[in-house]
Amino acid sequence: MPGTAELRALRRRIRTVQNTQKITSAMELIAASRIARARQAVERARPFAEGITQVIRDLSTAADLSEHPLLVSRDPVKTVGVVVITSDRGLAGAYNSNALRRAERLIRALRSEGREIALYQIGRKGDSYFRYRDESFAATWFGVTDKPTYDDAVDIGERIVADYSGERIDEVHLVYTDFRSSLAQVPTAVRLLPIEPRQISGGQAYPPQFVFEPNPDEILERLLPRYVEHRIFAGLLESAASEHASRQRAMKAASDNAEEIVDDLTREANRARQAAITTEINEIVGGSEALAEG
């Protein structure tokens, strides 16, 4: 009978789209709940950041900073380390392409100044992006960005500080995605090393009876790598929150789109069903008239 085959095909398509929609809306819900947790992690890490920054500021009035290798700008700068944070998984809207575009812009600017680039890639998406473009990596880390732990940040920080101290790189920049709100995530590039003096200036001098164990220079020696690690940690947390927010938005759009497709297909299916019924009635009426005439 005409129309039935078409009807069956339409119903099958509706079911397929509905199944996809179930997946996208589940992913949307998961992402939404992870945003809240990622935001909390950012908030909870703040007291430490404030504490360590304050101590470094105060300490820098007591210790001699001009000599510290993590604070001194090198001349000339030959190789620049670029740390890029992307996600491991896709389906996160424009999150990765925005972060990568920011990284690409930074790399182009540095190359135009004649710098060599050493890439430190965190997250698979950036890895495949740069690999496709024949870039090589100084180091890569996977499985970190979804739910960053402090141990991860320490691993990454130690490697970067070691390469910097070993003069394999003369400057380090970090590209991460800053979570401003659930609607706005901004890919951002900051300089990690050498530490910019204005970030650690403005401390209050310690009163003279203060005791230091060990001496202020040595304490600072221990503190500064921690400070770098914590900035990487903060970058990872901000990026994770941004990733989840982007994914939620992308999955919401996908679910809404699926809804629309189901509506259209349903309308089409109804039309096909109506056509099938009309044809059937026509045939019956035609048949009975033929019989009556006979």
Binding site: V55, Y206, Q209, F210, V211, F212, E213, I219, R222
Partner: peptide, 17 residues
Amino acid sequence: PEGEIGILPGHQPALLA
């Protein structure tokens, strides 16, 4: 690094690693 330390209220101000 220089040994075990106990701090009681009123201790001299200090910064320790």
